[in-house]
């Protein structure tokens, strides 16, 4: 049974539009994602199979480390959809649930 946290769900939402790297996700989240946790969360999500990553292609002779680009997987989207369904169902009042 896969588990997904609120932060992981937010990252999947942000990655649905396009492939992004860590810093882009922080900027796009408008303060909801923190620098200290984003890389750890992304690494954990990759281990769970929610996202995949690749190193960006860079011109020859570029200095510094290549950035890692993240993309959501079909499995990640499926778990996210299930998470949204569950969240909406739990948000219903008991009377509305019937």
């Amino acid at each position: 049974m896969p588990s997904i946290s609120g932060t992981e769900a937010l990252i999947i939402e942000l990655l649905e539009a396009s492939e992004r790297f860590g810093l882009e996700l922080i900027d796009a989240s408008e303060g909801r994602l923190k620098r200290g946790t984003i890389y750890v969360t992304l690494s954990r999500m990759e281990a769970k199979g929610f996202v995949v990553s690749r190193q960006e292609e860079r011109p020859a002779g570029a200095i510094g480390l290549p950035r890692r680009m993240y993309r959501v997987t079909a499995y990640g989207q499926k778990v996210h959809a299930a998470y949204l369904l569950l969240r909406d169902a739990l948000a219903l009042k008991p009377a509305e649930a019937h």
């Binding site: 790297f21 810093l23 923190k34 620098r35 200290g36 890389y39 750890v40 690494s43 990553s53 890692r68």
Partner: peptide, 30 residues
């Protein structure tokens, strides 16, 4: 998988001045 993305982003942010870089150093420590 975990450390090099943080360093790569830190290197990209280097041009934005010491304050942002300092924040990223803190993130890198975590």
């Amino acid at each position: 998988r975990l450390v090099s993305p943080a360093i790569a982003d830190l290197q990209c942010e280097a041009i934005h001045g010491w304050r942002r870089r300092l924040r990223h150093y803190w993130a890198f420590t975590i």
